[in-house]
Amino acid sequence: EIHIRTNGEEQARKVYKMLAKRNYDVKIEQHNGQWVVTAS
């Protein structure tokens, strides 16, 4: 499982799309105001 911390919604969405293209199961979560993308 991969966790990627991003500094904002826009970046989180870019990372989300990139990983989704590679057939990862991707989730975006917010932790303490930080956007974290989780891929498995």
Rank of each mutant, 00 (worst) to 15 (best):
Q11T: 07
D25P: 05
H31S: 10
Y16P: 03
R22N: 09
A20Q: 13
T6I: 12
S40I: 13
T6E: 02
T6G: 03
H3F: 12
M18C: 15
N32A: 08
V15T: 03
A12K: 01
Q11W: 13
G8W: 12
Y16G: 15
W35H: 01
Q34V: 13
K21Q: 13
E29K: 07
G33F: 04
Q11A: 11
K27G: 04
H3K: 13
V26K: 01
G33Q: 03
E29P: 00
T6S: 05
W35S: 00
G33H: 08
I4R: 02
Y16H: 07
R5W: 14
Y16F: 10
V36W: 13
S40P: 06
V15F: 11
V26R: 01
V26E: 00
Q34C: 12
I4P: 02
N7Q: 10
R13Y: 09
E1W: 14
I4S: 02
E29M: 10
V37L: 03
D25A: 09
K21A: 14
K27W: 07
N32Y: 06
M18I: 11
Y24S: 05
K17N: 13
R13S: 04
H31P: 02
V37W: 00
A12S: 02
T38I: 15
R13V: 05
A20Y: 06
E1L: 14
A12R: 01
A12P: 00
T6F: 15
Q11R: 07
L19S: 00
V36D: 03
N32S: 06
Q11D: 10
R22H: 13
E29T: 11
L19E: 01
K21W: 06
N23M: 11
K27F: 06
I28P: 00
K21T: 09
Q11Y: 11
G8K: 13
E9G: 04
I28C: 15
T38M: 09
V26N: 00
K27T: 09
H31T: 09
R22Q: 12
R13A: 04
Y16W: 05
L19N: 01
K17H: 11
E9I: 13
K14N: 05
V15S: 02
Q34T: 11
V15Q: 02
K17Y: 09
R13D: 04
Q30F: 14
A20V: 14
T6W: 04
V15C: 15
Q34K: 08
H3I: 15
E9M: 08
V37F: 01
Y24G: 04
V15M: 07
A20K: 15
T38F: 07
L19Q: 00
H31L: 12
H3T: 14
D25K: 14
H31A: 08
E29L: 08
H3E: 12
R5K: 10
G8N: 15
R5P: 05
H31M: 13
A20G: 04
E1T: 14
N23G: 15
N32G: 09
Q11N: 06
E10W: 12
E10Y: 08
W35Y: 04
Q30C: 15
Q30P: 03
D25E: 11
E29F: 14
S40Q: 08
M18N: 08
W35I: 01
E10T: 09
L19W: 04
K21R: 10
V15N: 02
R5C: 15
G8A: 09
I28K: 01
Y16Q: 09
G8D: 15
